[in-house]
Amino acid sequence: MTLPIETHLLQACVSEPVKPVLDSVVTFGAGHFYVSQSDKGEMVMGGDLDGYNSYAQRGNLPTLQHVLTEGIAMMPFLSKLKMLRTWGGIMDMSMDGSPIIDKTHIEGLYLNCGWCYGGFKATPASGWTFAHTIAQDRVHELNAGYSLNRFSTGHLIDEKGLGTKTWIS
């Protein structure tokens, strides 16, 4: 089975811990940047993909440079902090930016994938609807839209309008 998914690379980083300065998550959509402060005081930051297919779980600095540039554009004080840790992980980019939670044409094979940037925060709903789909062997109305065949039918859930070029952002 080939899926409408490409495997990409996303990095994130944290600064050294500092006393509380930010009490919520801030995202900067146009600049591809998000930041929040952990309870330990580290600023947790991330943004763009490195931009090519990858399973390597290692990123390169220019992407972080770009992400942090956007960060400084929004919060200039970040410039005086130091980047403590970085990491890179695998990102299952679906072709319309939304996940697939569905049965497949193979009996007993179910899909819950293509989460792109957002698979952590969606875990409860993703798990619940997936469990329903498996247990009942049919999708729940909440995940009906996240079907695999939406690409064939054109019922895409494209929040950003990037279409099939997931690496462009």
């Binding site: 080939t2 409408p4 998914i5 490409e6 495997t7 297919n53 072709m95 690409f151 690496w167």
Partner: peptide
């Protein structure tokens, strides 16, 4: 970057099955 180079665009003015078209536009070996 321009993605998987093995993807071949179906020829113009030829009938293309749904499956072939989806494979061209969306499905990737990754």
């Amino acid at each position: 970057y321009g993605g998987d180079a093995s993807v071949k665009r179906p020829e113009l003015n030829k009938d293309v099955s749904d499956q072939d078209w989806d494979d061209f536009v969306y499905n990737r070996k990754s």
